[in-house]
Amino acid sequence: MSITQRVQQWATFGRVWHVYDCSYQNPFDSAKVIVKYLKGMQKPIYHPMNDCGDHVVCINTKQIALPGDEWTKRAYFHHTGYPSSATWTLAWELHSKDPMMIMKKAIYRSLGGNLQRRHTMQRLHLFKDDKVPQEVLDNITNQIRQLRPVPQRLDHIDQEVIDNFPKIMDYPEDYLPKAIK
């Protein structure tokens, strides 16, 4: 085996570390994408029996976004096994207790059930903010593209940009800027 082939062999079977920024992303849509990287489905050598999955580092899981009123409508069921110990926790309550749990459960669920699931989950690394240990950062070589654009807050835009932005509305002549008290 020549040097080139040997390096090709390493590159093919080496585990790549991807980073995914969860801020303002839907966890359930993101999970479908992340699962493909965890299983290695983006590789031409993919086979369910082939151990070729990659690592994914999810950062900013506290900043995930849910559409509409889903924070108060989505419930997480838990049962300890004892009688009358069923609990239904709303998504926002679960997220205040553990900011990584919704993302973890979304990915765990979309992995689908087989015996490989627990081992695949070991390759997922969740962080609630952008403080990632250096030894994890050293491995990362790729970034997964975000699914939704991150919206910009008005108070984070420079006042100069706001003032010089083209205007599409002007006040009528008889408009009183401030009501008299």
């Binding site: 976004a65 509409g68 919206p151």
Partner: peptide, 11 residues
């Protein structure tokens, strides 16, 4: 307060 502190988006 409560659920209002988390990020959300709309269609």
């Amino acid at each position: 307060y409560g659920f209002k502190k988390f990020n959300k988006y709309f269609f």
